[in-house]
């Protein structure tokens, strides 16, 4: 039944959009080919939380996200969004991949890419209505990039690309936002724009799970953190995670003292 509803893109209308647990990851193991990169990862994210996933390079943070979303098949474990399997609530979950996962030379405009976020709400032809286009314009406006709407994708800077990808996720009107290193290599104004949007998103009681690499601002930006180092090494408030022995083992004592 799950496979059928998934294939037909039927979203379970009975799903509650405000359960206590927005995301539950239980005993998840995943990797590429025969190599397991994340083992037996378990944690829960409360509704309305902003959670950071941190860890050293190669620890499996992006792999974990992809497995959580079903982009790579987990070898073990389960994942629940809003108390349902992903297939039943895909309409309510948006993903912002790393910017280099898109071919920015593609012959399209910014408006076209942002409009992709509406696809999950549309019929088989993917034809957008006036309401959908208004949502696209709102999302572009919220990230201060309305003036880029008709610009070719190939003309965007790194920071503009991040804003466009976040706009695409927002236009989906999700309850849970999953982001992979959105703050990497961006200018100050883009960083502030992203934080403003995330603050507004959280103020609506929505949940964000973000892979974050800058340990210096985890405490300022996030409610809780999960430390990944091949598995879930520590979970708690940013202070608790950074004071944990697992954090010192993953990053070394220098980082721990600095944080």
């Amino acid at each position: 039944m799950n496979a059928l509803t998934s294939m037909l893109r039927i979203t379970d209308k009975s799903v509650s959009l405000s359960p206590e647990i927005a995301l539950g990851v239980y005993g998840l193991s995943a990797g590429y080919g025969a190599e397991t990169i994340v083992r037996d990862a378990s944690f829960e994210v409360q509704t309305g939380e902003r959670l950071a996933i941190i860890g050293p390079n190669g620890a499996g943070k992006s792999t974990l996200l992809k497995a959580v979303l079903g982009l790579i098949k987990p070898s073990a474990g389960s994942v629940q969004f809003l108390n349902r399997g992903f297939g039943a609530v895909r309409q309510h979950v948006a993903y912002v991949a790393q910017a280099d996962e898109i071919d920015w030379r593609f012959p399209g405009k910014v408006r076209d890419l942002v409009a992709m976020g509406r696809a999950v709400h549309l019929g088989i032809t993917g034809r957008l209505t006036a309401t959908d286009w208004r949502a696209v314009d709102r999302a572009l406006g919220s990230l201060n990039i309305a003036h880029l709407a008709d610009r070719p994708l190939s003309d965007l800077s790194g920071g503009q690309r991040r804003r466009v990808l976040l706009a695409r996720a927002l236009v989906q009107d999700p309850q849970v936002l999953i982001m992979d290193e959105p703050f990497q290599a961006i200018d100050v104004s883009t960083r502030e724009a992203l934080i403003d949007v995330l603050d507004a998103f959280q103020a609506e009681g929505k949940t964000a799970v973000i892979v974050h690499h800058n340990l210096g601002d985890v405490q300022a930006l996030f409610d809780r953190a999960v430390l990944i180092d091949g598995t879930v090494a520590s979970v708690g408030s940013p202070q608790e995670v950074m004071a944990s022995p697992a954090f010192a083992a993953a990053f070394g004592a220098v980082h721990q003292n600095a944080a």
Partner: peptide
């Protein structure tokens, strides 16, 4: 003529289309 936008989405970002449940078809 009927499906160009869905096709464009798939060609541009197949991962996103996979998340939207349309990739297998």
């Amino acid at each position: 003529g009927l499906f160009w936008r869905g096709l464009m989405n798939w060609v541009l970002d197949p991962q996103s289309t996979q998340l939207q449940g349309q990739s297998s078809a």
